[in-house]
Amino acid sequence: MSIWEYANPKKFLTTSEKVMPALWVSSAVLISAGLIWGFFFTPDDYRQGSTVKIIFLHVPSALMAINAWFMMLVASLVWVIRRHHVSALAARAAAPIGVVMTVIALITGAFWGQPMWGTWWAWDPRLTSFLVLFLFYLGYIALWEAIDNPDTAADLTSILCLVGSVFAVLSRYAVNFWNQGLHQGASLSLDEKENVHDAFSSPLYVCMAGFALLFLALVLYRTGTEIRARRIKALMARERLEA
């Protein structure tokens, strides 16, 4: 038994269809439980009031935004090394989810930042690197969409993903450096480790687990869709071949 047997599209589809209902249900239960717990059964922060509770959406989505890119990187590597089509399609399927997570993180961040810092947006290193990550996602998706031949697109996007990852990390450090340069250390950074009280951390972990499962379910679902789309394309090409 090797995990590579799931690289067969048929095997992937049958297996993922079996596990997906469980994933959907458990992610829905965890997210709603975590959010209800977080919104209604935690105390207000003495400084931030109830505003702080947006953390239960903000942190899990930010986490997933980064993890989605990381998953794409791993899937791209698998495609480059082992040439499993499902892997390339999984990377393609994950990108739009990553974008949505990035946008949720940015928007909830803005909603949180407005009452806290008095501004919707600041060029804080963390915010800025998320914006740059968003741009990387856009480029990656645009490249997938622009190329007809699926194998060419898979090859080019995976190389872009590898190169992009290096530059994304570089940008993260560059942005850190750049803002210190501007603000002489007076930063708006949200230091979660210090801020989050125990009363908040448990529902936060529940939400994070829920988001992770939701992400997994969405990736499996979308990969299945991509596989079927490829299958249709292949069948149509076959028809042309026979004609």
């Binding site: 190329i147 530059f167 994304a168």
Partner: peptide, 30 residues
């Protein structure tokens, strides 16, 4: 090289290249 085979690849190329330019721009203008 990424966009060489595409018709009207210019705009897409800007979208791909700009994020990669971020660190160079930051340090250079700094």
């Amino acid at each position: 090289a990424l966009t060489v085979g595409l018709k009207r690849g210019g705009l897409l190329m800007s979208l791909l290249v700009m994020p990669l330019y971020v660190p160079t721009l930051i340090f250079g203008s700094e």
